[in-house]
Design a protein around this nucleic acid. Structure first.
Lengths: 195, 195
DNA sequence: ACCTGGGCTTGACCTGGGTTAAGGCGGAGG
DNA sequence: CCTCCGCCTTAACCCAGGTCAAGCCCAGGT
């Protein structure tokens, strides 16, 4: 077993026999990415995903008008991939970019489907993953509906303290749905208020 | 089989043996709701959900400050329930209210879990449901990130033409994340522009 | 026919964030 | 050492949307 920690983490979600995990490790490939390197680019087939072993990624979507917005940051132990597009069998509309030199464990969805056919535990895991992603997205929706940009900022750092210092400010802005200028103003406002 | 249409719809998502569906129908209860009646209120245990047979519902969340925002509208064939809270085993934080005299088919999550233990098809269905909900929420997130209120409005009516005339305008505003005043202004702006 | 209330509109005023453009600052490379 | 670049900040101006308040329209009830 090459990744016992990862196995443990997944086994807390769903009963996962070690021999099934061994099969998964057999089809997974490790990949290293330099800072700024893309794990996936828009237009790519959404036919693979990965677990982050080391590093931070951002999922970026560029709107027709050319505005970058950020769907999510992903760090150690989290999944990267164009999940929504994969489910809809569409080509990826997002770029997934390493913000640091990173290291990931890649799965082809095809291989994963083979695992699913072999044992229900994989389907159960996939369900758990879908449910967790849903809960996160709904939380974010709620934030857009009832919080101001400043409140969203505060909440962001409360919920992602491990990203402190690892992501540029402009990306935080693009995650919050505002410009870097607005974010800078919000921060100076807060500095003044509490100085 | 009391609800053959519903069975057909679900069977397109996942292979669903008719005898399993019969078991589901056996535990389901029909319920009628008057206009404005609540299917679920904040604080209720999130231990049941329903399929809408007739009518329209809104999922409302009231923020600590007392601002109502609307998470979703649900019409015929769709599910109602405090899904995120159910997954997290939390009490419901949303009210689900009938906007018309409505008719639903109610399941207790407990009963549904029993079905799941009896046949994998129910787990597969639950996975599909989670995935679809995720895709919808992600789409909405994207809209908040890259569209103006006016563009969100246009998109809303494109995607929900069947709700035309069935939901009050203030609720559309609360869904878009703006006030009814702002929505009214947007509409008059559009009227002028295209008159 | 008259009230009444709910839902929508409109106006006046304010604020937050977008846009554009001009610095500031620190680190990497010459 | 200086320069360049990437990243952040600040300022000036504009506009969308929030807030508060008044008014309109119309359906239902008496």
């Amino acid at each position: 077993m090459r990744f016992p920690k990862l196995f443990e983490r997944l086994a807390t979600l769903v009963p996962l026999p070690p021999e099934e995990w061994a099969k998964a490790e057999a089809v997974a490939k490790e990949q290293s990415l330099a800072k700024r390197e893309l794990f996936m680019r828009p237009g790519d087939a959404a036919d693979r995903f990965a677990v982050v072993l080391q590093g931070v990624f951002r999922g970026v979507r560029v709107s027709p008008r050319g505005v970058e917005s950020i769907k999510a940051f992903r760090a150690e132990g989290e999944l990267i991939g164009a999940y929504a597009e994969m489910l809809q069998r569409l080509p990826s509309m997002t770029a997934i970019e390493a913000l640091e030199p990173s290291h990931v464990l890649v799965f082809q969805t095809q291989d994963f489907q083979k695992l699913e056919r072999g044992h229900v535990c994989w389907e159960r895991l996939a369900r758990r993953v879908a449910e967790q992603h849903f809960v996160l997205k709904e939380r974010r929706e709620q934030e857009f509906l009832e919080l101001s940009a400043e409140e969203r900022l505060v909440k962001f750092w409360e919920e992602h303290p491990h990203l402190k210092g690892r992501i540029p400010q402009r990306d935080v802005a693009a995650y919050l749905g505002i410009t870097e200028v607005a974010l800078s103003r919000i921060m100076s406002r807060r500095r003044k208020r509490t100085e």
